[in-house]
């Protein structure tokens, strides 16, 4: 599959703060890639550069076959982006927001109206479509915000923490929509802090930490990289308070327990749980600055 996004040696600083430190990745057409990282990891800056909003300091970025630095307009014609903050016009109705976006995307006024109705229905906003957005709840605004980015087909779709503020049902519905976009051939780059989201949605995950990509692979590959099992210390409510990875063998489990004991995480009445490694374990290990994992 051809790559719709190619990023090589991307660097960006704001003043003395280095936000992106030579990151490199690609996203194939028809695939979903999750950029996973904590607040301040550089996810939004990456997306702003890829969507032509912020210039990079160094590196090369091609989106939909065009260099963002020299052919920004060509890039903008082929992308769709939803930012971290909801960007809807509160004075207009939901339908008017969608119609405006449709016309700006080159649809005729009639086609824009038809498309707006389709998207309102698919977003569960049919009943609210003729009401002003200022009367919408936060979740409704977010759903409208996402619908705005789906008004017209795009080769590359950027979603910056798209499910923030959505309930479980709306989140699942959005994931379904994103999968449909990828099945239709779009490359989707989604940033998220939710490990569950990356695990459920993405074909590949890039773990971004302090401006560097510290791991890359499918969710299964990343979990396998952590070893076969995680040994966890849990509290009375079953919540995990500490953990260690292991290869799943008896010797490995003993070693993991020894490491937990060595740092004082084990008490006489501690409850131990052993489970297969999750993306959560991977993420914690990779972004733990005291951990052994070296940046890629």
């Amino acid at each position: 599959m051809a790559d719709a996004i190619v990023v090589e040696g991307l660097e960006k600083s704001f003043g003395d703060q280095r936000v992106l430190d030579g990151i490199r990745f690609s996203v194939a057409r028809g695939s979903i890639v999750a950029l996973l990282g904590e607040n301040g990891a550089g996810k939004t800056t990456t997306l702003r550069i890829l969507t032509t909003v912020t210039p990079a300091d160094a590196g090369r970025v091609a989106v939909a076959g065009h260099d963002v630095a020299s052919a920004g307009r060509e890039v903008r014609r082929r992308i769709s982006a939803t930012g971290q903050n909801v960007s809807v016009d509160a004075t207009l109705t939901g339908a008017e927001n969608l119609e405006l976006m449709g016309e700006l995307r080159g649809l005729s006024r009639r086609d824009a109206r038809v498309r707006a109705q389709e998207l309102l229905e698919r977003s569960g906003l049919s009943d609210a479509g003729r009401k002003r957005v200022r009367t919408y709840s936060g979740g409704m605004r977010r759903r409208l915000d996402l619908a705005l980015s789906m008004v017209a087909p795009a080769d590359v779709v950027f979603l910056d923490e798209p499910t923030t503020g959505l309930d479980t049902r709306a989140r699942s519905a959005l994931w379904e929509r994103v999968r449909e976009l990828a099945e239709a051939g779009a490359a989707v780059l989604v940033t998220t802090q939710y490990l569950e989201e990356a695990d459920a949605l993405a074909d590949r995950v890039l773990v971004l930490h302090r401006g560097r990509i510290v791991a890359e692979g499918t969710p299964a590959e990343l979990k396998a990289r952590m070893g076969g099992a995680t040994v966890a210390v849990v509290d009375g409510d079953g919540a995990e308070v500490d953990s260690e990875g292991s290869d799943g063998t008896a010797a490995g489990l003993r070693d993991a327990l020894a490491r937990l004991e060595a740092r004082g995480a084990l008490g006489a009445d501690s409850v131990i749980a052993v489970h297969a490694a999750t993306l959560d374990d991977v993420f914690r290990r990779l972004t733990d600055d005291d951990g052994d994992e070296a940046p890629r």
Binding site: T51, V53, R76, R77, I79, A81, N85, S87, V88
Partner: peptide, 12 residues
């Protein structure tokens, strides 16, 4: 309040 951020990613 965000609208310009959206418009800036479009061919507008």
């Amino acid at each position: 309040e965000g609208m310009m951020d959206r418009f800036r990613t479009m061919d507008v």
